[in-house]
């Protein structure tokens, strides 16, 4: 025989799944929400998204090529995904230089300083976002009004911010209700907020796509949203004057975006469903606590980052059920 046969250990067949496919499918799932943000905020949304993606991929390439001295792996799609998620987490009016700094922190500090894809303990996009939120609080919380809005104002407040201000001022929830957008507006995204988080319905559409393609399982998003619903629901029942009904919290802010796209980041979430339950429970509880009792109106990014930190611990203590094992 002229040709040498290949020898490799079993198994000799492999699923058609790959890291690249997973990344590109998540990106695809985010496209509807992206389109909506372009519709809402116009070309600014395109500018921020493109800039974030290009900056993330560019920094990844440069750092891998010149600092880590390895073959750049920007085609795996993870840098592009980080870029999109970062863009989704900032207001559309953010200055370009801030988003570039955010991309550098997200990719450089959040991901590559730990060794690249798979080794980062925290979600890179959230590391970038939280860094920006703490460093540039003014720019990060001035929300532009939609291009279709019938108003002369340039900026507006997010529903969560309105709620927080109102509660701080001691107003009962019932008085605040008329200032807040209706559930329908919340669902399809006719509200102020970060670029990608406004339309709950389109984010859920992407979730359905990812479930269909088996990119993620339902566990983390459902557990997170379920926890928020239950905990906020409990508070609402205790004191409906001070705490708003739970559906409002599910549909506003980054709850959907965080629960579906950020908390499910494979690298930083636990492996087993048991572990995922604990992780999601933590995210839900911390989110509700920050939203109701904290200084910030929104808390899911902090909640996810905190639980990211617990993930290795959860992985150590919550092992899968062994076949034939005792537990």
């Amino acid at each position: 025989m002229s040709k040498l046969l290949t020898i490799s250990p079993s198994p000799h067949v492999h699923t058609s799944e790959s890291v690249n496919k997973i990344m590109y499918r998540v990106i695809l799932a985010l496209v509807p929400a992206l389109v909506w943000s372009v519709f809402m905020f116009g070309l600014d949304a395109v500018r921020v998204t493109l800039l974030a993606v290009v900056a993330c991929m560019g920094f990844e390439y440069l750092i891998q090529r010149f600092m880590m001295k390895e073959e750049p792996k920007i085609t795996d799609g993870s840098a592009a995904l980080t870029g999109i998620l970062l863009a989704f987490n900032v207001p559309a009016s953010i200055p370009s230089w801030i988003i570039i700094i955010g991309a550098l922190v997200a990719v450089g500090v959040g991901k590559l300083s730990f060794g690249g894809l798979g080794n980062n303990p925290f979600n890179p996009a959230l590391v970038g976002r939280v860094f920006l939120l703490i460093s540039f609080p003014v720019q990060m919380t001035s929300w532009p009004v939609g291009i279709h809005a019938q108003t002369d104002a340039v900026t507006t407040a997010t529903p969560l911010a309105i709620l927080k201000e109102g509660v701080k001022a001691g107003q009962p929830i019932a008085d605040l209700m008329h200032k807040l957008p209706s559930s329908i507006d919340l669902l399809y995204g006719n509200i102020a907020g970060s670029m990608g988080e406004i339309s709950a319905a389109l984010l859920i559409l992407g979730f359905a796509y990812m479930l269909w393609k088996q990119v993620i399982t339902w566990h983390i998003p459902v557990f997170v949203l379920g926890t928020i619903f239950m905990f906020q629901g409990g508070l609402f029942l205790l004191n409906p004057y001070k705490f708003i009904e739970p559906v409002f919290h599910l549909l506003t802010g980054g709850a959907m975006l965080g629960a579906i796209y950020m908390a499910t980041d494979m690298v930083t979430s636990p492996m087993t469903h048991k572990g995922q339950f604990v992780y999601a429970l933590g995210i839900g509880v911390i989110t509700v606590l920050i939203r109701n009792f904290g200084a910030y109106p929104e808390g899911i990014s902090f909640a996810i980052l905190i639980m990211n930190g617990f993930t290795p611990l959860i992985n150590v203590y919550l092992k899968p059920k062994r076949f034939g094992g005792k537990n």
């Binding site: 000799h12 997973i22 690249g116 798979g118 494979m266 087993t272 899968p320 059920k321 062994r322 076949f323």
Partner: peptide, 29 residues
């Protein structure tokens, strides 16, 4: 096995997706 199926693809970093844990019939990691 024909050529195109014979070779493995290059291995990448573990992305900790947990699929190996999910599919392991013995409940291992």
């Amino acid at each position: 096995m024909p050529d195109q199926d014979a070779k493995r693809k290059t291995s990448q970093n573990c992305i900790r997706c947990g699929r190996c844990v999910t599919v392991c019939p013995m409940g291992l990691e």
